[in-house]
Design a protein around this nucleic acid. Sequence first.
DNA 1: GTCTATATCATGATAGAC
DNA 2: GTCTATCATGATATAGAC
Lengths: 227, 227
Amino acid sequence: MPELPATRERILDAAEHAFMAHRYEGASMRQITGEAGVNLAAVNYHFGNKESLLHAVLKRRLDGLNQERLRVLDELEAAAAGAPLKPSQIVDAFFGTLLRMGAEPGGDTFMRLLGRILTEPAEFISVVLAQEYADVLERFKQALFHALPDVPREEIVWRFHFMLGATSYAIAGTDALRLVTDWQTEAADDGTDRLLPRLMSFLLGGLRAPLPEPPAKPKQRSRRKTP
Amino acid sequence: MPELPATRERILDAAEHAFMAHRYEGASMRQITGEAGVNLAAVNYHFGNKESLLHAVLKRRLDGLNQERLRVLDELEAAAAGAPLKPSQIVDAFFGTLLRMGAEPGGDTFMRLLGRILTEPAEFISVVLAQEYADVLERFKQALFHALPDVPREEIVWRFHFMLGATSYAIAGTDALRLVTDWQTEAADDGTDRLLPRLMSFLLGGLRAPLPEPPAKPKQRSRRKTP
DNA sequence: GTCTATATCATGATAGAC
DNA sequence: GTCTATCATGATATAGAC
């Protein structure tokens, strides 16, 4: 197929950049189509509406990312032959794969987009992400349960959530980082190369931290509310 | 002053709720003024524009929060009489004070608002937050430097940033959490009470994690680019 | 000082010619 | 498939009456 539909890809590229720079609500169709050099109506023709456009932008990259995550996890589990994996292996398969994808040639804009999108609580975005992530998160949760049999599952879920937060915030980029450092320049230019080991150390430290002591409520067992 | 200007406060309350529910761009002036039961133009009269309204909403609560944080830190340092504080004390003074504020009667909506706002990369919001947070962050950074003299300052800054991310994400609320857990109900209803110890364990584990090994680049000293 | 009514503008989406 | 012209809607902000 020599004649590739250039407009569709041009729109996706421009939209990815615009959503990254101005997030969903701030990016207008006119900005996107203008940057792509296509007509305003082309988005509606090819994707239907703005929401579906964002969905297509995310799906184009997330599919590859999550396939790669599952592939790495499968490989690790096959090599372990039933023995529990090390938590660091699982964390690296999930978060390391993400960060390494961001280090690839064009991957940084998508990584920043993802960081911003993950924190966007707009109604339909949560739905899209939940669909896209459901099975991957389930597989990784199970892997962590298996790797940390002594840690209550509830704690693992909470910590996975904290890890997602730290990562989203970290990859969402330099804007927020400006808050916490004024000598940002030094920290920023070696940024991506050293982000991975730094974040990994932090995440693992948090994952393996001593359990909090329960809030000393010995009563209150099996409370159920009828829905 | 018996006759308090009810409209101003009514607008602030309604705006806080609307910004929390729909974030900055999604909350319309009509929603806010409608919920407050005041005229559409009242916002512009009292606050000038929408940006200044958000600034006022944040300032009303952040002032108290940050004063309290500094008070706690001062108290700890006075008690230590020059000796280094424990990292857990500093982390608790910063993040614990925030989470405890959220546990107060009306504090939860502001806490969720703050979580969302902290991840919002809109241009002017970063400026507002940077102003509001500058001295507090500086003080806490210095306290951590003092408490962890063996850890490179650069690493501390990075980890502080990761901690902010995990916390923002955690308090931004239940929406994102739905991603990672489907038995969310169980985790959600004891939510706030147990969030604090859980998050604190995680943050401390990350803060004290072993340092990452440097990326094995023995060369490259004192690179400077002329600006 | 406070609110009513209105002005001005930008957005996403569509209809229909080419 | 692509374009031009246009629509309806909801946004912020202002001018002027009470």
